[in-house]
Write a protein that binds this DNA or RNA. Structure first.
Lengths: 229, 229
DNA sequence: CGACCATTTGATATGGATCAAGCGATGTGG
DNA sequence: CCACATCGCTTGATCCATATCAAATGGTCG
């Protein structure tokens, strides 16, 4: 069974549902952009959308492709804060500077919405204000889950990552990962080697099958959920 | 120079300021509770305030003491999501269930504010709505910084933790930590032994002095900031 | 003063990092 | 359309930061 999810500008996204046990948390807050003027911009892979500490001029909605937010430290270590896939909103801040930088992990089309316009609108329209709050709160919950994942060993983090991605963008029993291993590693606080070994291990216990590097088949979803719980 | 921060019910908190270089981020969003009816409740140390998955009936403001939000996994591993000290608001959610559980790390007094009342109020009063959004966004920024800390080695995480605590609750050059080493360890994703050794190491390089277990003297604040950056 | 609990310190073990090939997919130029 | 170069990923060998195990110490409270 497929559910068609709302999407701002033509490009429709489908989401596979409850043959998996999705926990009963609301993860569907988004911004209704149908009545909002914004403009579309295209980016190739690995392009910076904005830098940390840059002014927050826009709020972004992913139409296609994928985005990472991250910070790179002086010594080269990088931590990825989150990934955003079609339908997701990012770049939302109440302060006037971004906390992290944002970059594409794949060729992407983004809808840019003027921040000050939106904030002004929210001041008059409670529905908009409420949506902004909801999106922020959803983001908060996502980041909290990310923090929780650091309590787990490598393979379980990777399992959790696959579960999350499956929930957010899988059609049927396959997940098409929109990022490189290095991105996954920097998101989970691991190295590419460890991510790779974890995937191999998950394949060995028949939880997944790696079909085409970035294409993962979910063989035993309950096992993945159990591992990452 | 001391700044008196607003506090709901008598108990006033002071905060030492810019002899340290506080980065120019807004970290002062809070909820003005002066016109909100709520009720005060006292908790002794290590008491559960609410459990994960419990209904979100209240929003809480710390008047005195300190609170941790956390999740404990089946195998006993525990991850602390955040600490809350006097003036901080926690328990804010847009969903109707809490994501994490909340517990005191010290004897505490909390102001409980009815959630549905507040949400109803926010629907009519834009100032309240805006404050709720600001508090959520501030929380988001805090949790994002927490995620970033996982990219760093043990001693730097501990240094960062001290800096954060100093910013939030120090009077003068001392920090009175309102939690045990185990709490710090579970917040940073380390063991108590590693936290302890890191503290000893920071003492050896004359960055801090551990005066009374939970009382830390900031000897070289710039060094701490440098380490944790 | 004595008992207990939190913390520190010491010795050893280990999960994941690092270093180093090898391999397979994807793209490019001839 | 194929040979080859490149890049991303996997696999193997070794190392190290932090975990684990085990005392010893010190603070706190009855």
């Amino acid at each position: 069974m497929l559910i068609q999810t709302e999407c701002p500008t033509g490009s429709i996204r489908y989401r596979a549902t409850p043959h998996r046990n999705v926990p009963p948390i609301c993860d569907s807050a988004s911004l209704d952009t149908t009545n909002l003027k914004g403009f579309m911009t295209s980016y190739s892979e690995d392009r910076e959308i904005y830098g940390a500490m840059e002014e927050t001029k826009y709020l972004y909605k992913v139409v296609s492709g994928a985005v990472r937010t991250c910070r790179t430290f002086k010594d080269g270590r990088r931590q990825i804060g989150a990934f955003y896939v079609p339908g997701d909103v990012f770049g939302i801040e109440t302060g006037d500077r971004h906390t992290l930088s944002a970059e594409t992990t794949a060729p992407s089309k983004l809808l840019l919405i003027n921040r000050s316009t939106l904030v002004a609108l929210a001041a008059r329209d409670n529905a908009i204000a409420s949506q902004l709050w909801m999106v922020t709160a959803l983001e908060l919950r996502k980041v909290q889950n990310h923090v929780l994942s650091f309590a787990k060993p490598a393979r379980e983090r990777v399992a959790g990552f696959i579960v999350e991605m499956a929930r957010r963008l899988s059609v049927s029993d396959e997940v098409q990962l929109p990022m490189k291993r290095q991105d996954i590693a920097d998101y989970l606080g691991l190295t590419i080697e460890t991510v790779s070994r974890s995937l191999t291990s998950l394949e060995n216990i028949a939880a997944v099958k790696i079909q085409k590097r970035r294409q993962i088949v979910l063989r035993d979803y309950p096992a993945l959920v159990r591992l990452s719980a």
